[in-house]
């Protein structure tokens, strides 16, 4: 159980760090020595004790710092959180899902007490003690989705189902891999994925949508996605691209091991009970190359995956300018030995 929360930043002086325990439990996304898109969906929650897959909403040593970073981003740009008018009920569904999960899985950190529709929520790490009336938005300081996602790591997209499609009609998005909620809110599944190269021709989106539409209440699934980020920055938004973009050109052979981060998204999908909406949490994990390579299997594998990656994906994931330096650095961790199957370290 997490007791310690790091005092760290995701901007400016970038003091973010992973403890040795956090490195070992990192959700390394490659189960083999090569990568191409796949739908790669598994049931969620469920996984080895202590892994980020064990509980519905993983709370780790970065929790408090991530919530502070989200508050900074929202203060500068409130449009990172949006909910079209018909989505409030889905927001309540999400609030209930997260509060119940956190109170059940981390009882020493969170508490939820219900007396009919009068609820009492305790969040010890963030020092929040809130009594409110469920389904009455006037009893909370924010709308229900914003309220709970200011207390939950990762981005959240709420998807409304109609016309055989899913529409991104609400979300809290402050740790995104370069997409804009403000621009994409209101789009359907194919529209908001439109900029992703290759995947459409491969039929990935048709399959994924079909799968999502079939998700029933009480079921949840997950998949891992990944990209590369220079510096441990959560807010790699298009809105601020002109501010963080120059940092991408600061990678050198000397600093790449500590400054280049693998950014992994633990994405999950949940059908919500009252609204019939789907919530799509996108939890971001960051680890620098040298920390990952402290697990010899991961060092070998990451080298092989990035060395052999399709150039179109290298471009899309935005690390083409640094790929040679990254691969040259990782080569020192790859002795050519075979790697074991699966994502977990040996």
């Amino acid at each position: 159980m997490t007791k310690h929360f790091n005092d760290e930043t995701f901007r400016g002086d970038y003091t973010y760090y992973n403890s040795p325990e956090a490195i070992r439990r990192f959700p390394f996304p490659f189960d083999r020595d090569s990568y191409m898109y796949s739908v790669n969906i598994e049931q969620h929650p469920g996984g080895p004790a202590g892994s980020p897959f064990e509980y519905a909403f993983d709370v780790d040593e970065h929790y408090v710092a991530e919530m502070k970073d989200r508050a900074i981003t929202l203060a500068e740009d409130p449009l990172r959180c949006q909910s079209l008018p018909h989505m409030e009920l889905a927001g309540w569904d999400l609030l209930e899902l997260i509060m119940e999960a956190k109170a059940r899985d981390y009882p020493d950190l969170f508490g939820l007490h219900k007396d009919g529709d009068r609820w009492h929520w305790i969040n010890r790490p963030l020092r929040i003690d809130q009594r409110f009336t469920f389904l009455d938005a006037t009893t909370l300081p924010y709308g229900p989705m914003e309220y709970i996602t200011r207390q939950a790591q990762g981005d959240f997209a709420l998807l409304h189902e109609r016309e055989g499609n899913l529409w991104m009609d609400a979300g809290m998005v402050t740790s995104q891999a370069d997409w804009s909620l403000d621009f994409d809110v209101g789009m359907n599944f194919f529209e908001w994925h439109a900029p992703v190269p290759k995947a459409k021709k491969m039929g990935v989106f048709d399959k994924a949508l079909k799968f999502l539409l079939a998700v029933q209440q009480g079921q949840a699934y997950r998949r891992l996605n990944w990209t590369m980020t220079v510096n441990p920055r959560l807010d790699t938004s298009p809105e601020n691209y002109h501010k963080w973009g120059p940092e991408k050109r600061t990678i050198t052979p000397q600093n790449v091991g500590r400054k280049q981060f693998l950014r992994v998204e633990l994405q999950s999908f949940w059908r919500l009970p009252r609204s019939n909406a789907i919530v799509f949490p996108i939890r971001c994990y960051l680890a620098c190359l040298d920390d990952l390579a402290s697990q010899p299997k991961w060092g070998r594998r990451l080298h092989r995956v990035l060395r052999d990656l399709d150039p179109v994906l290298v471009e899309y994931k935005g690390f083409a300018v640094n790929r040679d330096i990254i691969v040259a650095h990782l080569a020192r961790y790859d002795d050519g030995a075979p790697t074991s199957p699966g994502i977990f370290p040996d």
Partner: peptide
């Protein structure tokens, strides 16, 4: 959508 063309350089 228009995005800064010289953000990185």
């Amino acid at each position: 959508q228009g995005v800064c063309v010289d953000a990185e350089t």
